[in-house]
């Protein structure tokens, strides 16, 4: 709920910051998942190497 004492620009800026933070967290999570999946794949394949 927007604060009625706050100007629309400030509220919009707050929402933009939230969106930016969500993008940053989303990208970081994706990188972490890809990293962990890669590690799991590598570890799983070590025993199977000829």
């Amino acid at each position: 709920m927007p604060d009625p004492t706050e100007s629309p620009t400030l509220e919009a800026r707050k929402k933009r910051d939230q969106r930016s933070l969500a993008i940053a967290l989303g990208l970081a999570s994706f990188m972490l998942v890809v990293f962990l999946v890669t590690i799991l794949k590598i570890t799983g394949n070590i025993g199977g190497a000829p």
Partner: peptide
């Protein structure tokens, strides 16, 4: 401009 992460 007022869209939050929850809207996405």
């Amino acid at each position: 401009a007022f869209a939050g992460p929850q809207d996405y």
